[in-house]
């Protein structure tokens, strides 16, 4: 645990030098939220009638929350693995007194905490002040949301780690990385919530883990689900978590053996 703390604090210090770039980034991530909000307002039109059972206000709240949730669950582990395998630094990473999976996860999490603190939270707060944020969120839902987001973060990480490990065999994960980001954009609900999807796409999304990363945690927070449905979401998240963890561990162990035998 002490080691974890150390890694956390070091990578946090590395990044916490305040720079002009971050100011610009924050400003523009705010602008992108603004753009999204006007887009939804335009779609709802002047009447603002509920569509697919979702009212304009819910949608605006969803837009703002999805920026935040997508930001916090994000991971670049596939890229990190790719770079460390190609540069050969993975061999020295294996010498760390901590599992590589754990190490990369902490790295990913600290990066996100930093980006969230400096980039996302200010822009989200600005958007809330600017557009108003009318949502009744019960403490219970908030706790469930936090739990669900933690699970979502783990799912996204494990998924990316699983496919990122393939770089040990394929030497290049660029294409996989891209397919992954496409699927994530499409099915996670980061850009368009699944409420508005046509039936075939909705069905497809049920069989993929992506909806449990952004869409479902927000749906839980906004209290759009019954208790049974909420339980179902958590059950599915747990299923994906266990499944991906086992798969990622199995693939990674094979990959690690390959690196240790062949020297990367």
């Amino acid at each position: 645990m002490g080691l974890c703390k150390k890694i956390l604090s070091i990578s946090f210090k590395e990044k916490s030098i305040f720079r002009f770039d971050y100011l610009v980034n924050t400003l523009f991530s705010f602008f992108y939220i603004v753009l999204k909000v006007y887009l939804w307002k335009g779609l709802y039109g002047i009447s603002g009638e509920a569509v697919s059972g979702i009212a304009l206000n819910d949608m605006l709240v969803y837009s703002i929350l999805s920026s935040f949730t997508a930001g916090i669950t994000k991971t670049t582990v596939m890229n990190d693995l790719n770079e460390s395998v190609l540069s050969g630094s993975i061999s020295s990473n294996l010498l760390l007194p901590i599992g590589l999976k754990k190490y990369l996860f902490l790295h990913s999490v600290t990066k996100n905490i930093f980006l969230t603190l400096y980039g996302i939270i200010p822009s989200v707060l600005a958007a809330m002040l600017f557009f108003g944020f009318h949502a009744e969120i019960s403490p219970v839902n908030l706790v469930l949301y936090v739990l669900s987001v933690i699970m979502g973060t783990l799912i996204n990480f494990l998924y990316n780690f699983l496919f990122g490990s393939s770089v040990i065999w394929f030497r290049n994960s660029f294409f996989l990385n891209n397919i992954n980001s496409v699927l994530l954009n499409l099915f996670s609900g980061a850009l368009v919530p699944l409420w508005f999807f046509p039936e075939p796409m909705k069905i497809l999304s049920v069989f993929l883990p992506f909806r449990y990363i952004v869409f479902e945690p927000i749906a839980v927070l906004l209290n759009t689900k019954s208790a049974a449905e909420t339980a179902y979401v958590f059950a599915m998240q747990l299923f994906w978590l266990v499944f991906l963890f086992c798969a990622a561990t199995a693939v990674w162990n094979r990959g690690r053996n390959k690196i240790m035998i062949q020297g990367g």
């Binding site: 569509v51 954009n185 499409l186 508005f196 999807f197 046509p198």
Partner: peptide, 11 residues
């Protein structure tokens, strides 16, 4: 493009 179509078609 697909997401754009999905989103606007719904409305």
């Amino acid at each position: 493009f697909l997401l754009m179509w999905v989103m606007i078609s719904a409305f």
